[in-house]
């Protein structure tokens, strides 16, 4: 056995190992590219406009006031169903097969924007705002995808008007919302007031994720998809 043939043998083994590694890496990438779910669904424009407001009825579960105002006083503002504050723990949207537990708390970032969850597979809620079911706009955000594939809110763009959204809360209750509309906005023209501002009394919910095309330079999506919903039942 000469030194050169030993070396040659070692190089042969190295090459064989390299072959296996390359095949696994390459094959994996090709397989993933071919089986990748493709771009996430986007809401079509018909979903962006709410259906004409239907007068809320006692069917909404709102308790009838014991003393109905009879005089010509200012009419009772109708806030619909309201729940006591309680943090959200899980989110369920059967129509798009979304169910996620362990919602994380989100704060505000350095530019005043809502922070995104650090974990791609977890949704988060804006913890300084109202809890889902409470007065005002509760906000839940989640990633549409990670750098590798679909994330927790991948299907959010497929959500339709009228769909039910359930939020399970820490106190054991469930807040049930109905989707009013789903819209897509360029982040450069994000309707801050519409999404985050006071709802005039109702308990509402905003679900936010990314949409549209991706900016290759920044690595971020150019649009946000926002679903607007209001509370119909709290128990």
């Amino acid at each position: 056995m000469s030194i050169s043939s030993t070396l040659g043998g070692r190089r042969g083994v190295l090459a064989a190992v390299a072959t296996v590694v390359l095949l696994v890496l390459g094959g994996g990438l090709v397989a993933r590219a071919l089986t990748a779910p493709g771009p996430p669904p986007q809401p079509d424009s018909s979903q962006a406009v709410a259906a004409p407001a239907t007068p809320s009825t006692s069917a909404s579960g709102r308790p009838t006031p014991a003393t109905a105002p009879t005089a010509a006083e200012a009419p009772d503002p109708d806030f619909g169903v309201l729940m006591a504050p309680s943090a959200p723990v899980a989110l369920r949207i059967p129509s798009i097969h979304l169910a996620t537990k362990g919602l994380v708390e989100l704060g505000i970032g350095t530019r005043g924007e809502l922070e995104a969850p650090k974990d791609f597979q977890r949704a988060g809620w804006y913890a300084a705002g109202p809890t889902p079911g409470e007065f005002g706009p509760a906000v839940i955000a989640g990633h549409v995808d990670s750098t590798l594939g679909p994330a927790v809110f991948y299907h959010l763009g497929a959500l339709k008007k009228g769909a039910q959204v359930m939020v399970d809360r820490k106190d054991g209750s469930t807040a049930t919302f109905v989707v009013d509309r789903v819209a897509r906005y360029p982040k450069a023209h994000f309707p801050t007031s519409e999404v985050y501002a006071d709802t005039g009394g109702r308990a509402e919910l905003r679900l936010i994720t990314c949409g549209g095309d991706i900016d290759r330079r920044s690595g971020h999506y150019l649009d946000n998809v926002v679903a607007y919903a209001h509370l119909v039942q709290g128990a």
């Binding site: 924007e113 549409v144 995808d145 990670s146 750098t147 594939g149 679909p150 906005y185 994720t209 690595g219």
Partner: peptide, 10 residues
């Protein structure tokens, strides 16, 4: 403003 909720993987 908007939220950065995507990694671009899809």
């Amino acid at each position: 403003g908007g939220v950065q909720t995507g990694g671009g993987g899809t």
